[in-house]
Amino acid sequence: MIDAHGPVRFGFRELRNATANFSSDRKLGRGGFGTVYLGYLKRMGMEVAVKRVMTSANTSRGEQEFIAEVNSISKLSHRNLVKLIGWCHERGELLLVYEYFPMGSLDKLLYADARASGAPAPEELTWERRYGIICGVASALEYLHHGSSKRILHRDVKASNVMLDGGYGARLGDFGLARVVQRDGATHHSTRAVAGTRAYMAHESFFTGRASLGTDAYAFGVFALEVGRASDAADAALDGAFDPAEAERAVKLALACCHPNPRERPSMRAAVQVLAGGAQAPEPPLVKPPFVWPPGGGLQQEIELARVGVLFTGARAQSSFCLMTSSSISGR
């Protein structure tokens, strides 16, 4: 059930007209669950991004994503979150209406040939802006985990899900995989299948099928490292123009968030304090810690996961390890 006391419910005809019948000329992008179009709502006098969720008679995945997104962010209000304006469930169509950000998603500025597409050049992602983006996403996750009335796990933090406003402010969006965890002490959400984008997923996710505060923190760590140093071109663009103290805080925090042991990762509340300079950044270990599941070791086990390969976990001869024998991992 979709909560009725949330964003505006639109009619299909209005959204069809707003997007010129979902014209290919209006296409902004395509993701794992649907296509996003640029629309113009005459009654509101504003441009919007309209996501047309893919549906199939063979699966309810698209509808599940639709309901999850509406319910999880309908009442959220934070400066670093993309605002859901409305939705439509009519004629077998599932549509979501968001704020529109002309600058697009962060990944396009980090990696794409910006000049060819007419977008701002990568040189405009100064260190100050990069650090602000890292801080903004951290603040959004802290709000989802600790600040809203319901604890929400995003489950898909990555550069392509971060939009940029006109001032290069970060707006975390795409809540299709997000799940609400009630405030009864629960800190995780169990799923039947591994969900998320694999390059950003914590190792334990493949064993437990669970999303947690720690798996969101891990994804944030990968994201922070990515934004801090996306490419050699970024290094040239920064040309030494960065704050060494901020850079050290960001890197140390990112490494801590990516710790193989989920118990060692900082909370997003602690992460925000570190980035603001209100707390010391955790010191990374001198030697890269191994991944062991479950944490604390145990007997050696061999596990085979679809699309991942054979994994060996546990303790053997007082040395704990996890070995991936296959790297056939693809993104969502």
Results as ranks from 00 to 15, higher is better:
28 L>K: 06
101 F>H: 09
78 H>W: 03
329 I>A: 08
74 S>M: 03
76 L>S: 04
159 A>G: 02
45 G>M: 07
11 G>T: 13
83 K>I: 00
169 G>D: 07
206 F>I: 10
247 A>G: 06
165 D>M: 01
318 Q>V: 03
206 F>R: 05
66 F>R: 07
306 A>I: 01
42 K>D: 14
303 I>Y: 11
284 P>L: 07
290 P>G: 05
79 R>V: 11
188 H>P: 00
180 V>I: 15
30 R>V: 09
2 I>H: 02
311 L>I: 15
209 G>L: 09
165 D>Q: 03
10 F>V: 05
76 L>Q: 02
214 G>D: 02
20 A>L: 05
57 A>K: 14
293 W>Q: 06
214 G>F: 01
44 M>G: 13
94 L>D: 01
10 F>H: 08
14 E>D: 15
88 C>E: 07
332 R>E: 07
4 A>Y: 01
282 P>L: 14
169 G>W: 04
298 G>R: 00
225 L>R: 12
269 R>N: 14
164 L>A: 06
263 R>D: 12
229 R>H: 12
329 I>M: 14
198 R>M: 14
282 P>Q: 12
154 H>D: 05
266 P>E: 11
200 Y>C: 01
134 I>L: 10
14 E>L: 13
41 L>F: 13
310 V>T: 14
210 R>M: 11
253 L>G: 12
65 E>K: 11
240 G>I: 06
148 S>P: 06
223 F>R: 09
258 C>V: 08
175 F>S: 09
311 L>F: 10
235 D>C: 09
105 S>M: 00
323 L>S: 04
1 M>A: 09
9 R>Q: 14
149 S>L: 13
291 F>A: 01
86 G>A: 10
123 E>T: 11
326 S>Q: 06
227 V>F: 02
293 W>Y: 15
306 A>L: 05
301 Q>T: 11
329 I>V: 14
323 L>H: 07
204 E>I: 09
266 P>V: 13
242 F>C: 10
57 A>G: 14
323 L>M: 07
124 E>I: 08
185 G>K: 10
136 G>T: 07
82 V>P: 00
226 E>G: 08
171 R>T: 01
291 F>G: 02
252 K>W: 12
318 Q>H: 13
241 A>L: 11
53 V>H: 02
208 T>D: 10
202 A>E: 08
221 G>Q: 07
212 S>K: 03
239 D>V: 00
233 A>N: 06
